[in-house]
Design a protein around this nucleic acid. Sequence first.
DNA 1: AATTATTTCAACCGCTATAGA
DNA 2: ATCTATAGCGGTTGAAATAAT
Length: 266
Amino acid sequence: MVKASCYDKNGVKKGAWSEDEDNKLRAYIQRYGHWNWGLLPKFAGVSRSGKSCRLRWMNYLRPNMKHGNFTKEEDDLVIDLHNKLGNKWSAIASKLPGRSDNEIKNRWNTHLKKRALISDHQTVAENEHIGTLESDDQANVNENPFKEIDVELDQQEVDSLLAEILSDESPSSSSRTELSSYPDYGVLSDLWPQTFQDEVVGNFWTEPFLPDNGGIGPSSETLLSPFNFVNDFISQPPSCQDMMMTNEFYWSTLDTYVDDNMDFLN
DNA sequence: AATTATTTCAACCGCTATAGA
DNA sequence: ATCTATAGCGGTTGAAATAAT
């Protein structure tokens, strides 16, 4: 059920991802993070657009992603949140760990939309009936598991709910003020303090990254890791309190690195 | 068993928001 | 204020899988 792969006129591959491509992308991001989706494919050694890499990572390769059937609880939650938020797939996905916005959107369009419609019709019919019941009977009818589906929220309530969801999420990835604030930075963000301590005394900052690019671009001797620039800086592991300064330094050294390797990157 | 219709879902595309120059 | 680059979102596509005939 995947699109056959092919190459566009620029030599960028499209269609289904191979296992080899997955492995390359996963290995690169888990080690170095996704500091720039546009440049990442070249460093990771895959002939894909940055957009395609981002999508593959977000929807499939991220750690702890679930694949396979939705549970009844997940389905109920999607229906409930869709009723409150509409097609805000990203906001809905933020409340379902391990599920991507794309997966939830597909689930809604292929299964849940019909179910919600049926439930709506049933609820309308029941409401017409409820009007004729005694109060005790009405309470029993309200045991309907889809009772919340018919709750109408005004725009203010929707905005409030969205704000609540967004406040739970990581800050915008566009901000460079905190490296660890990058959403979906993968294992590095989840384990950042310990990883930082481990890798700083190990080889994370000092070992050159050797892209598997089929011989294109500079040799492994000349293509240096951005982290080589900070060798002197981190003669000893910084504390977590030093992270802000470290992050600023990371970005400035990375910019220098990109400038120095611009010929290859272009 | 062969053919046709329908369903599913990974991936693509176009657009908007945001940040930085 | 404007332009450019990038990230992210939501709608759509299309080929494989499955069901129906």
